[in-house]
């Protein structure tokens, strides 16, 4: 029996390393307990050292790519499911192409969940200006991801916001980018971030780009689920926009056509003169 401790930061590398050693030594899935971030406590802490790396283990590239996503899922069974798939792949190398296999379908579904969470994090993190002065500007954000996606998503922010310092704090893991160095730290409670006046401008934009004649609330919530709203500054306007939409459209319809402003005749004369 092996108990494999997996850290919260660097989970992907730790899982892959352990899986390689275990599969190499032919350890079957039932003989492994995966312990994420000491969640099992002392009770199951069996200190069997992992088998040494004996030979190069081959797995399909498509499995490796899928595993790199699935390890960040919040399902406690993720590591066991991945290992069981790796175990089956030893004798069924074509298994990854079988989209009808139930185990694979479950893993693909988990992969999709992590993909979506990563995508939503790229979309919905909202930075606030910390106004700290200095050569580089500093920003910070609070975000609550569904899965453990801070670590795989942070490099995106590093590529995009390389000329500023930033921090994304979450209850799970906190990412920090200072002077071009990206580091990860334990999660934390929501920090007090200073007010940022640009949020009001963003709210103005959100309200005015909305077309009240095309109200489609379910199309909005399917892409921007309510669970994200509390950390989105623009979401505070949604209720009023929906409530006032019909009246606004009615107003446009009821308004009688107006006479064109006086300048029109002059402009039209000029336009004609140009041709």
């Amino acid at each position: 029996m092996y108990t494999v401790p997996l850290p919260r930061i660097g989970t992907d590398i730790a899982w892959r390393d352990a899986a390689k050693r275990l599969i190499g030594a032919g350890v079957s899935p039932e003989d492994i307990l995966w312990d994420f971030d000491n969640e099992m406590g002392e009770l199951f802490a069996i200190d069997t050292p992992l088998p040494p790396v004996t030979r190069r283990i081959k797995a399909p590239q498509s499995f490796v790519e899928m595993a790199n996503w699935v390890v960040w899922h919040k399902d406690p069974q993720r590591f066991a499911r991945l290992y069981a798939m790796l175990w089956r792949l030893r004798h069924q190398p074509g298994l990854m192409q079988d989209r009808a296999d139930a185990d694979l379908a479950k893993l693909r579904q988990m992969e999709k969940g992590v993909h979506r969470c990563k995508h939503k994090m790229k979309a919905f993190v909202r930075f606030r200006d910390l106004r700290q002065g200095g050569a580089r500007r500093s920003f910070a954000a609070w975000f609550e991801p569904t899965h453990h996606t801070v670590e795989p998503t942070a490099p995106f922010f590093a590529r995009r916001f390389a000329d500023m310092d930033w921090m994304i704090a979450t209850p799970d893991v906190t990412a920090q980018f200072i002077d071009g160095n990206l580091t990860f730290h334990p999660g934390q409670p929501k920090p007090d971030l200073p007010e940022d006046a640009t949020e009001a401008l963003w709210g103005t934009y959100f309200c005015n780009i909305f077309n009240p004649a095309r109200l489609k609330v379910s199309a909005m919530t399917s892409e921007m689920p309510r669970k994200y709203w509390k950390n989105l500054p623009e979401a505070q306007h949604i209720h009023d926009l929906i409530a006032g939409a019909e009246a606004k459209v009615q107003q446009m319809r009821d308004a009688a056509p107006t006479l064109p402003p006086e300048r029109v005749a002059k402009i039209k004369r000029q336009l004609r003169g140009r041709d």
Binding site: R159, A162, R214, K216, V217, E223, L241, I242
Partner: peptide, 25 residues
């Protein structure tokens, strides 16, 4: 991307929808 530290911003193939208005757009 701006990994060289001399600029701001990146584009990586697929775009990102940062918010949705109540018109579903």
């Amino acid at each position: 991307d701006s990994r060289d530290g001399k600029g701001l911003g990146s584009t990586e193939g697929s775009g990102i929808c940062h918010a949705y208005a109540p018109d579903g757009r």
